[in-house]
Design a protein around this nucleic acid. Sequence first.
DNA 1: ATTCGGAATATTGTCGACAATCCAAGGTTG
DNA 2: CAACCTTGGATTGTCGACAATATTCCGAAT
Lengths: 230, 230
Amino acid sequence: MDSGFSHTQDKQPKTLADRVYTQLRAAILDGDLEPGSKISEPELAKTYGVSRSSLREAIAKLESSNLVERQANLGARVISLSNASLLEIYQVRESLEGLAARLAAQHMTTAELDNMHELLAHQRSFCKPIAEKKYQSLDFDFHSSIVLGSHNQRLIRILSRDLFELVHFYRRKFSGSGPRPDQALIEHSEIVAAITRRDGEMAEVMMRHHIRAAREHAKKSFTDDSSLTA
Amino acid sequence: MDSGFSHTQDKQPKTLADRVYTQLRAAILDGDLEPGSKISEPELAKTYGVSRSSLREAIAKLESSNLVERQANLGARVISLSNASLLEIYQVRESLEGLAARLAAQHMTTAELDNMHELLAHQRSFCKPIAEKKYQSLDFDFHSSIVLGSHNQRLIRILSRDLFELVHFYRRKFSGSGPRPDQALIEHSEIVAAITRRDGEMAEVMMRHHIRAAREHAKKSFTDDSSLTA
DNA sequence: ATTCGGAATATTGTCGACAATCCAAGGTTG
DNA sequence: CAACCTTGGATTGTCGACAATATTCCGAAT
């Protein structure tokens, strides 16, 4: 039973539309498809070697993942990101991941706790030689482990489908802004400590603080070099 | 009848798939399609007089609305609801609508405030002769007005798409359990008062309390007559 | 009789073609 | 010259048919 992040993990596709969905999502997240650019069905269908039917189904899935927006008779476009929209996402994340941390403190199994500790250790070791890409991946895995530890399926669904996808999307835009790795590591440690001692209240407070700090960091970083985003 | 929320309102469909989506959603929420029942594409395509392509697109939209679940090569089924799942939804709602209330206190325009007050007044007048259906509709509109007042598009999207749909779905199941209208009205009044005086902290506390109370009410009501759900 | 295997049937996935709608270019008119 | 209409091209929406997969039903073997 893969109770995991079905949207980020690449399960082998059982259907063509599924495969194209994965490929398209990767293309969007890697920036091969520019934000705001139009998605031409005939063109991409030929590119990926599938019929328009399959491609349209893939697009429908992308739409439900919030990565593209479709209008009737006008076609689909890759979402374009505004700074305000990123701040909105952080606001929601603060609320939901705070809840996740509290629930994780209550419900995490020992195996899940071990896994979380291991992820933190990994993160600690990779801290100094900051391989940007690798660091982001570890950070994502860490947050995911806590979200999964909440054991609230609805919460897991929402965070994975509506928010984490978008966070990935934004990150490649602001990759230069640097995720302040050292401070984040300290905060992660505090969160882990609270969860480990089953202190839900404190875990929630620390997680909310952690995400709020990231939000402020982002806010500041693009009020400075807003020219970079153009 | 149904007043203003983009996802529930039936904007005139520009496309066939859109029309079928609206019809199917209504059928599910009205109980014409049993929870857990299989969705036969050929059958429903004939029923609604459209091709399977259009119907499949409608199903895709239903899936993104969390009203049906699809498995590769196995088809789609109307979601089946467990009590545990309902409690999960309440947990997430408590967190998100609490946030919405706090933001609404900060960002609501005077027009939106007036509208909210009017909805509360409506609710007050309809309190005694409890027309179940009408009451639920008003309650929904009230909560929607606050969520919209948050002015956080991401939050609005998540609540409308992932949670309120499901709340509708559950309500017809537990319609007998009664939404404790008098107490809810008091709590609504308190929330409105806090928002009106721009007290975000208090608005969040009251909203969270309100939803937690509803959660406990539901919890109790189906631990008693769990036989009714069968 | 029960269980296993395989053919027959039904359902979903995929495709290419047609119809409806939107977009762009060019010409007409004030 | 600008604004509007027309017309041609391209894109999306919709359809019916074919292919791949799942389900059902029936017979055979233990």
